[in-house]
């Protein structure tokens, strides 16, 4: 059993008012935990609550001191007109380019606004996933990815994540089932795992 990275107890989170939880789980190094559930259940809100990105109304998130968290959020920052290359993007988070799929590795020198939505999504995902971190939080990582992208991501997660603890939020049950070592079901109103 790997080191405990996160211990979540009775977590209720939201913005002006609570919108998600309660949620309870423990994440260990080497685990990939899936948060599954329907749209609107508050999965993304709970993911943000793990590092203090939203208001916590009840419960707590405990982690050893010095834990580095990397969070891949849903949605795109508008990068049109910003002359930033894929290589420069990876350098920002400290992510290496080794291991990228060939169809993306050969395009690293291009500006991000010259990439397709799927290529940009995979690159953003890679920049967060491979940033030096103990805990990686992925929010709907398969959005905008084609079958090849999802397959590459799933294969990579299956064989190369041992050093980290990963929490994945997804409404895609196939991805959750394929890559996660454990799944917590998040329903509107309650969550336990």
């Amino acid at each position: 059993m790997g080191e405990v990275l996160l211990r979540v107890e009775g977590l209720v989170a939201g913005y002006a008012t609570p919108v998600a939880g309660p949620l309870a789980f423990t994440l260990r190094r080497g685990e990939i935990l899936g948060l599954a559930g329907p749209n609107g259940a508050g999965k993304s809100t709970l993911l943000k609550a793990l590092w203090g990105g939203v208001k916590v109304f009840a419960g707590q998130v405990r982690k050893p001191p010095g834990m580095r968290i990397s969070h891949q959020a849903q949605g795109f920052t508008d990068l049109r007109g910003i002359p930033l290359t894929g290589r420069e993007l990876l350098a920002l988070t400290g992510a290496p380019s080794e291991g990228l799929p060939p169809w993306l590795a050969e395009r690293l020198g291009l500006r991000l606004d010259r990439l397709s939505g799927g290529q940009l999504q995979f690159l953003r995902l890679w920049a967060c996933l491979m940033a030096p971190a103990d805990i990686v939080l992925l929010d709907e990582p398969s959005n905008n990815l084609d079958r090849a992208g999802v397959d590459y991501l799933a294969d990579w997660l299956g064989r190369a994540h041992a050093g980290q603890g990963i929490v994945i939020v997804s409404h895609d049950p196939a991805l959750i089932e394929r890559v996660c070592t454990r799944v917590v079901q998040v329903d509107a109103g309650s969550a336990q795992g």
């Binding site: 590092w51 990105g53 990397s70 969070h71 959020a73 920052t77 990068l79 993007l89 920002l92």
Partner: peptide
């Protein structure tokens, strides 16, 4: 700009 959560997620 590109990853608004990056620093905050690391405290």
């Amino acid at each position: 700009h590109v990853f608004p959560e990056f620093h905050r997620a690391r405290g």
